[in-house]
Design a protein around this nucleic acid. Sequence first.
DNA 1: TCCGCACAGAAAATATCTTTCATAGTGTGA
DNA 2: TCACACTATGAAAGATATTTTCTGTGCGGA
Lengths: 315, 315
Amino acid sequence: MNQDVKEIFAGSGGPAVGTPPAPAALAAKVRTLAPSMTRSMQRVAEAVAHDPAGCAALTVTGLAELTGTSEATVVRTARLLGYPGYRDLRLALAGLAAQQQSGRAPAITTDIAVDDPIADVVAKLAYEEQQTLADTAAGLDTVQLGAAVTALAAARRTDVYGIGASGLVAQDLTQKLLRIGLIAHAPSDPHLAVTNAVQLRAGDVAIAITHSGSTGDVIEPLRVAFERGATTVAITGRPDAPVTQYADHVLTTSTSRESELRPAAMSSRTSQLLVVDCLFVGVAQRTYETAAPALAASYEALAHRHSPRGGNQRS
Amino acid sequence: MNQDVKEIFAGSGGPAVGTPPAPAALAAKVRTLAPSMTRSMQRVAEAVAHDPAGCAALTVTGLAELTGTSEATVVRTARLLGYPGYRDLRLALAGLAAQQQSGRAPAITTDIAVDDPIADVVAKLAYEEQQTLADTAAGLDTVQLGAAVTALAAARRTDVYGIGASGLVAQDLTQKLLRIGLIAHAPSDPHLAVTNAVQLRAGDVAIAITHSGSTGDVIEPLRVAFERGATTVAITGRPDAPVTQYADHVLTTSTSRESELRPAAMSSRTSQLLVVDCLFVGVAQRTYETAAPALAASYEALAHRHSPRGGNQRS
DNA sequence: TCCGCACAGAAAATATCTTTCATAGTGTGA
DNA sequence: TCACACTATGAAAGATATTTTCTGTGCGGA
């Protein structure tokens, strides 16, 4: 009787514990999970993401026919998206449709074209990055995030691994953690990263940042840290990627479709930075007593690096 | 054949003939129709109006039990409200719930507090960064941007200066420019930066990124580049700051208020990245012929750094 | 007191969703 | 190149949920 289950869900007030079926974070979830889907499932997912309202009006059989697949596939897709079955996906779909209709219509974005005027480029980029942020926030598992924050706040030391664009995000996090008095490193050399990782032990934290989730140079140090008993966190756009094998906590970043002129690295960076910011603020909250004065001190220390006078600047 | 009779009844007396299933005007409809309902139906209608979200999670049987009536009554109520059956009422209910939920988000205007739950932190951060993006896009001078893009696209070489958080943005831009075949450097050592700047000449480009606009370590190399005749660009939050003295083109980033837990560096970074992305895409457009293959090649070259197998990933 | 009417619920009938299972396609290693 | 193992896929059986039908019950009027 999943009747009981449902009542418990309803009773508890809301986004239940474990896996809360995404309420409006559906579009994000579709994009995130699309790569790990089979062709048929992708067709279903696409239909769903493209026309939530229309699909909500359809029964399993209808949607199966529309997408040229079978009912089984539709149900499988619903499952993959985190719902108990199609019925619930349909409910969420109806909700999404209603939301879209009431004001926000974030559906259609045209790609950036080669001959777009610069003003359009600005508008489109800003819009897409906003979208990415919304998707990421909606899809972020706050339980995992909370666990990661707790581990970070208590860590003796923290290592952050990242390469390429993700390497910059790793450094960003490191800089911030250092500012609130934590001990953090972001080794940029993969060999150094592994060397560092060996030094970790239980109570320490290792964070791997990789969009694809399969960057060997980043997985390797995380694996070492994992085996040394450190708490490991993966920030990736692919929740099923190899890197998650060695991660105690997985934080998923959103994957928006990339276009020729807008490489995936761009949106993944935006997404990763938001996650990293959340981690930082979370840790700052937990360690407020020490974090606040440390932050203030770091500003203080930097003040003299800015020209005291100049231009007609204020203050 | 009292089937016909009933339909006629429902049609004529019935409040809902040509009424398309109410989208969100459901509560109103319930109130309007309540008087013409029987006791049992009223109980159902009341439950529905009182807790749309909860009822949406219930099946006919569940709702019947909850209201102490039978399934038939629930269906009858749904009919009276203008839906073909309970199924559709439930869908509308889910939509209503979603709308209500999305409508209720005034909490995010406030600053992040020390005791905010982690979910609020995520929402607030995402919201604020979205705001920052919108502000930046709105405030960006497209003429200046266009000029900077033109200069970049034609540059023999490009230097990008930045320190601290802005240094990461500088590196981000550099990485991207390198990917499309341009020659770019982002010296992280201030002394090296100046040394580099000396090598620039007319036709080259120097970009300084500094939020405050008064970071000596960044101004200095820009000044040198400026004096050597290079085209100089400043990306700063203070259009009147010292750094602009030596800038041919000034791109303004947005300055949102910072709070104790959210240092200015955070929003300025978001803002700077958007500007930098715009520059990149702009340049990629202008140099499309060479940029596109270069981008493709860089992906190609990286492919082998990703573990070929793993998870259930595709392709 | 009896009759008719409408309401309400039980149960049958139907539609819908879920699971299982066999098949075809796909990639892998010899 | 072939055989093998594996995965994805749809058909159909099985389980649930929804809708319809049907019958009993209470209330007001003759």
